[in-house]
Design a protein around this nucleic acid. Structure first.
Length: 1042
RNA sequence: GCUGAAGUGGUGGAAUUGGUAGACACGUUGGACUUAAAAUCCAAUGUCCAUUAGGACGUACGGGUUCAAGUCCCGUCUUCAGUACCA
């Protein structure tokens, strides 16, 4: 009976859908387990084989947990707001909602055919108003919160107002803007409502402020720091410039310490934790205040090395520092202004790319050293960043390489304050193994004590204190785009007002075009019905705006990460009960947080940080019970495509010829270049090119066939005017792959080109030129396969649809796991899938040994014998489903139980690739053993079912079960079946294994040694030498030294 | 530059605490079956030397610890990822 995977898979996918097999319940006696994938953005291109990798892994885990008796929540949904749909809308005029809906349909079809055990009844879409209603609601909670550093949590803004009313703001320890003026309770109570609102905005966890943002002109929007890669936009690679704009920001910096501390409580990889740690960038040190000579102004700096305070020989301010214009002397004014202008022109990218150039200007002003009272020259330099710390540094050349280089370049003093350290060549930046010298009261102390004492003395002077700084910046939250969540915000006299939660959602308005307006306003500026009426509490037409009851609405939308920062809570609630809550208290209490989260590491500083931030806020405000969203996180690696390249001839003029003829060297280079350009048209099948990986001459070619073809090519080539005086024998020939992407659809499994499909391909570059493909003796042209990122532009995208059609979903699932460790990057090569596909056929066969054996065993479970034809060994034989009640043999049991052990360990270690090998070994062994015993073959199916659920269901039902296999108990491992009575000992000589010897397990150490030493092979090995030492490790190894 | 991960056959990759390196597959070669192809089955397959028996070498490179190192330690190189003057 043949393995009809297409029929079987369709059958069970329908069964699961119809019976809601994977619907999770919010009430259960079983322990809960929540397995989540990072939900996809439904792009127009659909899925390629790389996308399901993480979904397959999480699905295996979810299915395994069900077998283990857990109530599993394994949902899926769509991150359906985003830039590509909007860019497409701009180009085609189609509403993003329409294209998004179409894309989701494709995604759903593709996901369904892979057989995931998702509970689709709980699906979420971030662009659905019923969903983004709650994103807007959370935004309001952020607006109505402030961060109390004393209680170390966010509180409702009312508690802050209460404090202001009774005590003013001087005793408040809050995360807030830097430019806060102190006021008393009395002053607060006398402020106008508008003044109060302005002040509160500086404390809210989301606030409107003029900030320097990353503006991307090409996309017409601002970008967050994590959306910029190497100075260009992550999407599209467009340049980014700095620009001041009024924007909503998220005060994530308030949570810096908790975000850092929380990492210790979660099970993520160290790599990922390190990325977040670096991004948060905590540094502990001190803030020091320097008086400026001749001015009332002071300069605050942050330093991590207060112990080196006596090593300061100058100060550097960022060119943008506010004091620069104030303190610059008349003589230096011109130079300073010129420098500021020059640095302002340099883009952020230039500044980044060019780290080595030292530049700066003296301001002419001096600061006063807090202890020695010596004058310290104040410089400006663009190595100091305005956005970090206070935008000013105290420069200590002996302890910091940048300060050292700067001082050396401008010939500033470099005093040495380290005992016995040579700083003539470079700074000594280490904090360890050094004592402070030439530093008054700090002399002889090491870093820790000196720092502490320096801070204490600074505090006595009122010129400093201990301080901790974080690199983490507040996150810009406004986007000048259409396809995102609208803010629930309207403006009264330019002051933002929240719309009452009762009136949410505020739906995205219709616009004619998705581009910014002519005035440079965001696309929502084009909406005609986009004003808020405070009487009817509804969105009304713009022309009704009267600024008394009807006000303009916010024109920005929220960024992509808004909707994804809380979606994992939405899944917890049944769709039917989602109306009045983002998730009910009971649901949140039952499911808590995600037990296992699988997704790509590219979200390390975006989604994964912002979600943690929002969860902490929701917890502080009492809406959820957990501090962290994702208990355990695994990053799946990327599956790379394998591009197919032809081998191309590389021609060079033989060096000997170069010198024998009198060429000018330039001319010769041109000639070589030209020869290569011309030869790019000549392709060689890979198997023919082997001789040419080193440069050889024409006459050295071994095959006559090749020599003839290449001679022909060279004749054509040398026909050009420029080559007239060169002969074929002056050239050397080499072969290399050339980056000419042969579309992967036109490449067969043996890497040969299918010229029929290639000629029908729409690729212009393959038709434009006169290419010559030299095929091998079999008439095939073999390409070189090179791993590269899968992308449309590289023509190397493999679609799972075709894989499922040709080999089935179970094969796809197994193969994706078989490729290698989950976390690793690995190339996809469709040819390899035959290995796992054959395995499934063998598995099928193992359960269909019916007819042959049926003759002597009457107890067979035969199903549909009429269709059980199989063609085997040249004959058509009847093969029925053949599993019986035969007593399992010792070998059967051993195979089964070592498989149980290994597979269980593998799944728990997320080592799915090794499980697949284990299954192969088990099936090979059981086939060898001709096992037909139900006691073995039934538990085996449960082991395999998380990986290949369709075939497992089918065979399980054939065993007579009417229920799905999905909740069958995972087989229990019995160690007793694996106990061996003897061991095949490897016998080593000086650590090298020479032969093996089977000995009883219970043989004593002495007896083993005696037996081994008496063995003829040992005697032969020793050739009469007496061994110095014999190492016997019972149950492991014997090693004879000497 | 700094931080992190990784380097094993022609390819993807195994080797759990130091104990038989290359499991399991792909590919390749040869064979069986077939009119033929496909499918299936069998055998060989790290490199080198040797007719065989067998031997030498082998986990990026150079050292070290150990009876024994892919695994532990020191140094070097390469690749990938993150970060980029963070005071």
């Amino acid at each position: 009976m043949t393995y009809n995977f297409n029929d079987i898979e369709k059958k069970w996918q329908d069964y699961w859908a119809k019976n809601e097999t994977f619907k999770a319940s919010n009430t259960s006696d079983q322990p809960k387990y929540y397995v989540l994938d990072m939900f996809p953005y439904p792009s127009g291109a659909g899925l390629h084989v790389g996308h399901p990798l993480g979904y397959i892994a999480s699905d295996i885990y979810a299915r395994y947990k069900r077998h283990k008796g857990f109530n599993v929540l394994h949902p899926q949904g769509y991150d359906s707001f985003g830039l590509p749909a909007e860019q497409y809308a701009i180009q085609t005029g189609q509403h993003p909602a329409v294209t998004t809906e179409a894309n989701i349909k494709t995604y759903r079809r593709q996901l369904d055919q892979i057989g995931f055990s998702f509970d689709w009844s709980r699906e979420v879409r971030t662009s659905n108003p019923e969903y983004y209603k709650w994103t807007q609601w959370i935004f309001i909670q952020l607006f109505e919160s402030w961060y109390n550093n004393d209680s170390n949590k966010a509180e409702h803004i009312d508690t802050l107002v209460e404090k202001f009313v009774s005590k003013g703001n001087v005793t408040i320890n809050a995360a807030c803007d830097d430019n806060i003026e102190p006021f008393t309770a009395e002053e607060w109570n006398n402020y106008t409502s508008e003044e109060q609102q302005s002040i509160l905005l500086k404390y809210r966890l989301t606030y409107l402020a003029e900030t320097e943002v990353n503006w991307c002109p090409a996309l017409g929007t601002v970008l967050a720091n994590d959306e910029i890669v190497n100075g260009v936009s992550e999407r599209g690679g467009h340049p980014v410039v700095r620009k001041k704009m009024t924007q909503w920001s998220m005060r994530i910096s308030a949570y810096a310490e908790r975000l850092l501390q929380g990492l210790d409580t979660i099970d993520w990889t160290d790599a990922l934790k390190d990325i977040q740690k670096n991004w948060i960038g905590k540094s502990v040190g001190a803030s020091v205040t320097f008086n400026v000579n001749g001015h009332d102004d002071v300069i605050d700096v942050f330093t991590t090395r207060p112990d080196t305070i006596f090593g300061v020989s100058f100060m550097t301010l960022a060119p943008e520092h506010e004091l620069v214009s104030k303190i610059t002397t008349a003589e230096q004014k011109e130079a300073v202004e010129a420098y500021i202008e020059k640095t302002a022109k340099r883009s952020e990218r230039d500044r980044m790319a060019d780290v080595k150039t030292i530049s700066g200007v003296f301001t002419g002003a001096y600061a006063e050293h807090p202890f020695s009272k010596e004058p310290i020259p104040i410089w400006i330099g663009d190595y100091v960043l305005a956005s970090y710390g206070t935008g000013a540094v105290m420069a200590v050349p002996c302890g910091d390489q940048r300060d050292y280089d700067f001082a050396k370049h401008f010939d500033i003093a470099r005093p040495n304050i380290f005992e016995g350290v040579d700083i003539s060549e470079e700074a000594y930046a280490s904090k360890d193994n050094v004592k402070i010298a030439n530093s008054d009261f700090l002399n002889g102390l090491a870093y820790k004590k000196a720092s502490k004492l320096a801070i204490y003395q600074l505090e006595q002077l009122g010129q400093g204190e201990g301080k901790t700084n974080y690199r983490l910046r507040d996150a810009v939250f406004s986007r000048q785009r259409y396809w995102g969540e609208p803010f629930p915000v309207y403006y009264v006299n330019d002051k933002p007002q929240m719309i009452d939660a009762a009136h949410l959602p505020i739906r995205l308005p219709e616009v004619e075009k998705y581009l910014p307006t002519e005035e440079g306003e965001p696309p929502l500026g084009r909406a005609d019905v986009w004003a808020w009426c405070t009487e009817s509490n509804s969105v009304v037409s713009n022309d009704k705006i009267n600024n008394t009851t009807i006000h303009p609405l916010e024109l920005n939308t929220m960024p992509g990460w808004a909707g994804s920062s809380w979606y994992f809570f939405r899944y917890m609630e049944d769709t039917a009960n989602r109306d009045g809550v983002f998730a009910s208290e009971d649901a949140l209490k039952y499911w808590e947080n995600v037990d296992l989260y699988i997704g790509g590491s590219e979200h390390a500083t975006g989604h994964l940080l912002y979600s943690r931030f929002w969860v902490k806020l929701l917890k502080d405000r009492g809406y959820v019970n957990v501090e962290e969203p994702f208990k355990k996180l695994i990053n799946q690696g990327m599956i790379l495509g394998t591009s197919a390249f032809p081998m191309v001839l590389i021609l060079n003029v033989d060096p000997k010829v170069k010198y024998s003829k009198e060429f000018e060297s330039d001319f010769l280079e041109d000639l070589t270049y030209l020869a290569n350009v011309q030869s790019q048209n000549y392709f060689l099948s890979k198997d023919l090119s082997k001789q040419f990986h080193k440069a050889i001459k024409l006459e050295q070619i071994e095959s006559e066939f090749l020599k003839g073809s290449i001679t022909n090519w060279l004749d054509n080539l040398l026909d050009f005017e420029q080559f007239k005086f060169l002969s074929k024998t002056d050239l050397t020939i080499k072969c290399e792959p050339v980056e000419l992407h042969i579309p992967i659809d036109c490449v067969e499994l043996d890497d040969s080109i299918n010229f029929d499909s290639l000629n029908n391909s729409a690729l212009y570059y393959l038709h434009n030129k006169e290419y010559s493909f030299l095929k091998n003796e079999k008439g095939k042209f073999i390409t070189e396969r090179v791993p590269e990122k899968m992308s449309k532009s590289k023509y190397n995208v493999v679609n799972p649809d075709s894989i499922v059609a040709d080999y089935g979903a179970d094969s796809l699932r197994l193969y994706e796991m078989f490729l290698g460790p989950l976390e690793q990057y690995k190339p996809w090569n469709t040819a390899g899938i035959t290995g796992v596909h054959n395995f499934l056929k063998k598995l099928w066969k193992l359960y269909h040994q019916g007819d042959d054996i049926n003759k002597d065993n009457p107890d067979y479970y035969l199903h549909n014998p009429s269709t059980d034809d199989v063609y085997s060994a040249g004959k058509v034989v009847k093969r029925g489903f053949g599993v019986n009640d035969a007593e399992p043999t010792k070998d059967n049991l051993k195979t089964l139980h070592k498989t149980i052990k290994k597979v269980q360990e593998d799944i728990e270690n997320f080592s799915f690739n090794t499980s697949v090998s284990t299954f192969m070994i088990a099936v090979n062994e059981l086939t060898q053993q001709k096992c037909t015993s139900k006691a073995i073959l039934e538990p085996l199916l449960v082991l395999i079912s998380p990986y290949a659920p369709h075939i497992a269901e089918e065979l399980y039902s054939k065993l007579g079960h009417t229920e799905s296999i999905s909740t069958a108990a995972f087989p229990k491992f019995e160690a007793s079946y694996l106990v061996e009575s003897s061991k095949k000992y490897p016998i080593s000589f000086n650590g090298k294994m020479r032969f093996t010897l089977e000995l009883p397990m219970d043989m004593s150490k002495d007896d083993i040694e005696k037996t081994v030493m008496a063995h003829e092979k040992t005697i032969a090995q020793l050739e009469g030498r007496t061994p110095k030492k014999v190492i016997v490790v019972p149950g492991k190894i014997v090693n004879i030294v000497g």
